[in-house]
Design a protein around this nucleic acid. Structure first.
Lengths: 351, 351
DNA sequence: GCACAGCCGTGAAAGGTTTCAACCAGATTT
DNA sequence: AAATCTGGTTGAAACCTTTCACGGCTGTGC
């Protein structure tokens, strides 16, 4: 293709063998100064760039780890990605970032791309089961680490944040503020995150000796293209919320994007927050604190999660892989209280 | 590595030649039903996955196009990416998304990774000159399309939004509201975007017959790690803004993240927006309309830009490449007026 | 003067896929 | 009966790099 120059041509022009050129590139210390300089000059002159595919073919694996997230439009995942990327770069690996947009189809497509690429390892926030493909990776010896999702023991590593606890934190806070009629707004319940946060919320309701009916659930459109449009889904949900009677006095959203959407609609409808409706989000993305009413939110250590995930993955691929033991790391979320849930609440700014 | 099965083993087990297996995969219509079924069964049983690297080595180029953006933490670029990705996927190509984080070093690193990968083409929002590496790509026959950055004619395609016009729109609006002392807050001026928006802003000031001094410039930290922390940079800038005397009555920010940061500080300091200070942002990211005071912003057609860029790139690589003519497409930005710049302003909600 | 070590460099093999000319058997045409 | 065609399959070449056992040479120690 387009007269691309290979190692062979470099060797020829420099008057050495291909092996030597390879040594110049990969083990310069094994080549005499003189030869090295000459070869490097030819490389420069010809604009030679080594072919990663040939290299990889020989090596059997690539220097890329892939990261497949649920929703790139959500700053939370961007943070996760940046954490993972930093860790990978420190180890000389590259990160290929992809977005499944919560679609099992996209997810499957990307996973098979990764398989064909023979990536070094896979970091993934699985959409749902998708166990099939992932098991195939493991069978082939490619480690898979779950991010933001606990992994059933034995199978592999995972880093997640305790979503049940997070749901509990949010609802406990609302209960403490005196609310007894709470709505939970989330994406589709097939997502473990949505499920677990609900479980935690419900658990807290029961711990307070209240009937389950005190927590009402609004699930946003089950459509495939929900992802990335979370704020819009939040607006829809808010419309449904306003139509409820009696109207809940507090809302807990499964992520900040939803919460911001809700906030927008409430703001537009003249419903005051937190006086008439208190609002709690999840993720504590940077925008949460800049919202119309600064948003109370459950903070997740996103970057840290990404970093740890990458580190676990690299540990599993590295030389020390032999005595690697799978770990399921569960981090603790933290409630950040702001104005959206407490009247005249703290002016505290996040971050 | 890990006993990975190749086409050879499949061929052997199915009792056919490797050529036939390849045909089963790539030209199934040329293989008899019977053979095909048998081969597919073996593939399934062995868990064979074809090696992209070997494939690519043979083909000379990959099925991946790369997209290198300035700042993944900015939703604007996430939109650009999603537009590009959609277009690429429709054409059967994959997008490798990377983040230069406005660092020339990172940019160079990624570009050489792309070169080694022999990507099909490069979409890039260049940090600064970086002409060297990009010229090398072209020399090797790999098309390079600039995104969100006009390209000097002849060299290649580009899609951008008229930043000079955008800067003008923002400032004209503020002038029309009666403001005569405006601050422009931006990232480092080596970024063309920041530069051009400033030019447009200044041009408008002059068109109104006002002295240039009516536009004061605050440039945020020249530090390398500015990227991704734009909202924070906005907070810093706002602090400096509050220290100015006389204090400007209006602020135009080079992106919404900066504007949101500014807004946060103003809000915290009890400065009312837009009464005491009017605020205009740039990009019209989704969060702009959900801010404490809905943000007036210059909207850029981000997704469309991404899509067009990918389409231009594919046109340049495709079969029709022979009669391809480089194009510099310049889209028009659009001002979206919200409450942050007009007292009792429109309640309009974005999107 | 010989044995040996160390340094540089070589040449060939291996890695998995795609492509393409050639081939084969059987069917159809002349 | 010979020639032509056709659908199906084959075998080998080419893609580019890395690795590794080995060879030639120089210098050192005995």
């Amino acid at each position: 293709m387009a007269g691309s120059v290979g190692i062979k041509e470099v060797a020829q022009q420099a008057g050495v063998s291909v092996g030597t050129v390879s040594n110049v590139i990969n083990r310069p210390e094994n080549v005499s100064e003189q030869t090295r300089v000459r070869v490097l000059a030819v490389i420069e002159r010809l604009g030679y760039v080594r072919s990663e595919s040939a290299r990889q073919l020989r090596a059997g694996q690539s220097r890329i780890i892939s990261l497949l997230v649920l929703d790139m439009a959500n700053p939370f995942f961007v943070d996760v990605a940046s954490g993972a990327e930093r860790a990978a770069r420190e180890a000389g690996l590259w990160v290929m970032l992809c977005n499944s947009a919560q679609s099992p189809g996209e997810e499957a497509g990307y996973l098979s791309l990764f398989a064909e690429q023979r990536v070094r390892g896979v970091l993934v926030t699985p959409v749902d089961g998708s166990g099939r493909e992932l098991a195939d990776f493991r069978r082939r010896g490619t480690p898979v680490v779950f991010v933001d999702r606990a992994q059933p023991s034995e199978e592999g590593c995972s880093v997640s944040v305790d979503d049940v606890m997070g749901g509990g934190l949010a609802v406990r806070h609302l209960l403490e503020q005196g609310h007894r009629d709470i709505a939970y707004i989330s994406g589709p319940m097939r997502l473990t995150q949505c499920q677990d946060r609900y479980t935690g919320a419900l658990g807290m309701i029961e711990r307070w000796g209240l009937p389950r009916s005190r927590l009402r659930h609004i699930e946003t459109g089950g459509l495939e293209d929900t992802a990335g449009r979370d704020a819009e889904a939040g607006r829809d949900a808010a419309a449904r919320l306003l139509g409820m009677s009696p109207r809940p006095t507090a809302v807990f959203c499964a992520n900040d994007l939803l919460a911001l959407g809700v906030l927008q609609v409430l703001y537009g409808a003249g419903v005051s927050v937190p006086e008439e409706i208190a609002l709690v989000g999840y993720d504590d993305i940077e925008f949460a604190s800049a919202a119309a009413v600064p948003l109370t939110s459950v903070r997740q250590p996103a970057q840290r999660m990404g970093r740890i995930a990458a580190e676990l993955l690299m540990e599993e691929t590295g030389d020390a892989a032999r005595h690697h033991r799978h770990q399921q790391i569960v981090l603790r979320p933290e409630l950040v209280v702001r104005g959206s849930s407490v009247s005249g609440g703290p002016k505290e700014r996040g971050m």
